[in-house]
Nucleic acid binder design. Structure first.
Lengths: 210, 210
DNA sequence: CCCAATAGTGACACCGAGTGCCATCTGACA
DNA sequence: TGTCAGATGGCACTCGGTGTCACTATTGGG
């Protein structure tokens, strides 16, 4: 079966993540040392770095992007769906998978870390950049013209921002609304464009509108 | 005049940046050590860290955002201008100022570093995030509703992405087009919205629009 | 012009992240 | 059970970054 080794490895990896998540609760990322995590997980410091190349990766590695999924999802799109819809669906699924790799009780902490701990926030941006390029590749045809490339890049980036801004707004608003409807609202902005004025929900025109 | 100290400080700071820029040319950021930069700039290692808090900051610190400029520029907007135009103007100026802090002969290298050296690219994203929040603050009224906040976030993010994607596309395209026209094209996408498929010209409504 | 207050410098020691090396241990399998 | 690949962890090292402290140079006043 050759399975005991694998099982131990998985359990050790999980132990590291769990220990790190517990230790970082309410503390700064930089204040939790690798030594501390390693001894909490009952492994040697050297072994820690065999499981995760850097301390950051304890919190990010499992968010590793499913490149396969993104490209196939974009290839399998229904012809009737517009770009924003397709990309938003892909992104929501990517987001879902990224969080699904962690225990539910750790997900709130994970969000805090990836948004408010600079080192981790910065790394998260790099992940998003990679997602963006994958989506762009899936949107444009072979040998795209600069203009087509530009449109795809702007579209993909804007959708990513909708997801990010949507989640941020949703959390700041006390998670009252349904996240899906917040994202749908953001997506609607992208479809509609920003040329015309926006009105606040009570119909009062925003002050910056002609 | 009390100016000799100031002059020396400025010259030392410039020497550090120049030495670092020369040393990093064609090499990886991680392969250039602080010791190396310090001795090239003829200062002690300890002094290096008095001028720049981290090695990264040699390349990023001078890009420090002019918060004042962003907020006042948004307050002073002409009422007739639409949001995309205003924000794009602000961003172009921010970009221009960021690069203006470096010697012209170092600017190409700086672009390479901030886009292709992971540590620096990640830090650059954090700067952009800060710019985004400043723009959002300038766009929304006092005590904004979640919906207004979401729109502003999406708009600001999308404009930032237009600038980033525009510059990338422009460079990849061999800098043939005028950068301003590339940015204008990206901005036009944002005004127009992405509802219509690139291939279809009719305004078929998307099923997700309320 | 000289002197004292003050700011800047750099050597040293120290910490934490990350790596190469190597002896040791342990699960896989014949 | 014995052999071997692979996992472990200790050690020593490099590099980024910081606190401390003695030393030097600029400044401004007498």
């Amino acid at each position: 079966m050759a399975g005991l080794r694998e099982a131990k490895k998985a359990s050790t990896s999980q132990a590291i993540v769990d220990s790190a998540m517990e230790l970082v609760r309410g503390r700064r990322f930089a204040d939790v040392s690798v030594d501390e995590i390693a001894s909490a997980a009952r492994i040697g410091r050297r072994t820690f770095f065999r499981y995760f190349p850097t301390k950051e990766d304890v919190f990010l590695d499992r968010r590793r992007i499913d490149r396969e999924f993104i490209t196939t999802a974009l290839q399998a799109r229904a012809p009737a769906e517009d770009d924003v819809t397709v990309v938003m669906h892909v992104l929501e699924e990517v987001q879902r998978r990224a969080f699904a790799a962690f225990r539910p009780e750790h997900q709130a902490e994970l969000h805090r870390l990836t948004h408010f701990e600079p080192q981790l926030a910065a790394r998260s941006w790099l992940l998003m950049e990679e997602v963006r390029e994958l989506i762009v590749s899936g949107l444009v045809g072979p040998d795209p013209e600069p203009s087509e490339l530009l449109r795809a890049r702007v579209l993909a980036s804007a959708c990513i921002m909708v997801v990010d801004a949507g989640i941020t707004t949703w959390i700041e608003g006390g998670r009252r609304d349904d996240l899906a409807s917040v994202l749908a609202e953001g997506a609607a902005h992208l479809r509609r464009g920003f040329a015309r004025e926006a009105t606040t929900s009570d119909g009062r025109p925003s002050r910056m509108i002609p």
